[in-house]
């Protein structure tokens, strides 16, 4: 696979699958301190002094001076270099792209400082899929359409990191229900998640994934490719569960909450899945989710959002600092 997997190997060499036969090691209180504290994300081309500091509404004593962005050495060329991102449109409703755009000013900050959108049929006049660092693929692949099949293969060839942006790309989602017959290509009836045709590096499910989640992944992808070693490590830790989701498979359903959470003895009844479901297919019964299968569109968001699908303490324990770092990168935190 791509660079990301190689990087992961380097960064998490110990993270081999657990040998189930191995005797349980000594009991230790988890001390998740593996990941360095996120330094503020450097804004390429800006001198730190010119950057607005954290909220004045907060007591001045709260503003940690060491959170200041590190001064970027001009020789450290790669840090200032933008990454290239492409949006590849397969069979999806453009809702994921709209969600990206719904970052509003954030989108401009992203495009000004971190990424060039070098391919996006909806917004940019580039016909052929170019080389790019990150491909955000929206939609599933219609295998009855040779162009789509060729495009997804080209995407894999040309992109370092392939992100399944949204549930159609990741899991098929509503396109799973296609029976063809739509004007003016009634023969288009078979749709597959992109992971059934190519290797996918990162999953970002939900219908559509929230603007904030796309922003976070974009910033982390930038840090992974252009950041300092510490930032790379943080970005890799952040992206790891989304990479694991990509390895987990291309089928999703509200049933995953039964199979992989409740049946596994992991559900504690927080209700996150209920809030997540875009079609309100989930209700809590006896403190556990109950899925109305007739309503479920197979987006996989409930499982991905569930704190018992993945919960990486190394990242989560730093939620405050990471949130601030992303806000700083996006020029927020000063309003």
């Amino acid at each position: 696979m791509g660079l990301l997997s190689d990087l992961m190997e380097k960064i998490f060499p110990k993270n081999k699958p657990v040998d189930p036969k191995a005797a349980p090691g000594p009991v230790t209180v988890p001390e998740p301190a593996a990941v360095p504290k996120p330094a503020a994300v450097p804004e390429p081309g800006t001198v730190p002094e010119s950057r607005p500091e954290a909220k004045p509404a907060v007591k001045p004593g709260d503003v940690k001076v060491e959170k200041k962005p590190e001064i970027i050495e001009t020789e450290e060329k790669p840090v200032a270099e933008k990454i290239t991102i492409g949006h590849v449109h397969m069979s999806g409703c453009t809702g994921c792209l709209v969600s990206l755009a719904d970052n509003y000013e954030g989108l401009f900050t992203l495009l000004d400082n971190y990424a060039d959108l070098n391919y996006c049929l909806t917004l940019a006049d580039v016909r052929d899929i170019p080389k790019m660092d990150v491909a955000l693929v929206e939609g599933s692949v219609c295998i009855n359409d040779p162009h789509s099949v060729a495009d997804i293969k080209k995407t894999r060839e040309n992109a370092t990191i392939v992100v399944a942006l949204g549930s159609c790309a990741a899991y098929g989602n509503i396109t799973r229900f296609s029976r063809g017959g739509q004007w003016n290509q009634p023969q288009h009836e078979s749709y597959l998640p992109i992971g059934d045709l190519i290797d996918v590096d990162v999953y970002l499910p939900a219908c559509p994934p929230s603007p904030e989640s796309i922003k976070n992944v974009a910033v982390m992808a930038y840090l992974l490719l252009r950041g300092t070693d510490e930032q790379k490590e943080l970005a890799a830790a952040y992206l790891k569960p989304l990479m694991d989701l990509a390895k987990r498979g291309t089928e999703a359903c509200g049933c995953d909450l039964m199979f992989d959470v409740i049946n596994q003895g992991l559900c504690m009844g927080c209700g996150t899945c209920v809030a997540t479901c875009p079609v309100r297919a989930i209700t809590m019964v006896y403190g556990k989710p109950n899925i109305d299968s007739d309503l479920c569109i197979k987006c996989g968001a409930c499982y991905a959002q569930c704190p018992r699908s993945f919960f990486n303490f190394d990242v989560m324990n730093q939620f405050e600092a990471i949130g601030e770092a992303i806000d700083a990168a996006m020029g927020k935190g000063d309003e």
Binding site: S99, L204, P205, A206, P209, S210, P211, E212, S213, N216, Y238, P241, L242, M268, C270, G271, T272, A275, T276, C277, P278, A301, C302, A304, Q305, C306, P307, F311, V315, M316, F319, I322, G323
Partner: peptide
């Protein structure tokens, strides 16, 4: 655990626009 869920919803807000 519910507070963990809230923080995950903030850091990985896929379905939490």
């Amino acid at each position: 655990c519910q507070i963990q869920a809230v923080r995950k919803a903030q850091l990985y807000p896929m379905g939490m626009r």
